[in-house]
């Protein structure tokens, strides 16, 4: 099942780098940040497993829109960041 466009999501505030060797496609600057799901891009082999030649299950990949000045504390109102984030990094924000 995939998340619907428009869903409010939070990127997990998780730092596997602290725990040991890893390969992560979730940029530091969006961890712990809230955004809006734009669309499901497809399902792709989990790069966190692929990088270590482990069996890599397919995981949903989403385009998530973030408020650019909201993340950096500078910038122009209305500007956005659009980032590919895997579903297992997202939590649905309940209003």
């Amino acid at each position: 099942m995939s998340l619907a466009p428009g869903t409010k999501v939070r990127v997990k505030d998780d730092w596997p780098e602290i725990r040991g060797p890893c390969h992560i496609r979730t940029p530091h600057y969006v961890r712990g940040e809230c955004g809006t799901l734009v669309r499901h891009l497809g399902d792709f082999a989990n790069p966190e497993d692929l990088a270590f030649a482990r069996p890599a299950p397919l995981r949903p990949l989403y385009h998530v829109r973030f408020d650019q000045p909201g993340i950096w504390g500078e910038g122009a109102a209305g500007d956005a960041l659009l980032v590919e984030v895997f579903g297992h990094w997202l939590e649905v924000v309940t209003p």
Binding site: L41, P47, D79
Partner: peptide
């Protein structure tokens, strides 16, 4: 004009 920065982080 609004700017959207697209960070190409994964499979696209």
């Amino acid at each position: 004009v609004k700017l959207t920065v697209v960070d190409s982080t994964a499979d696209y």
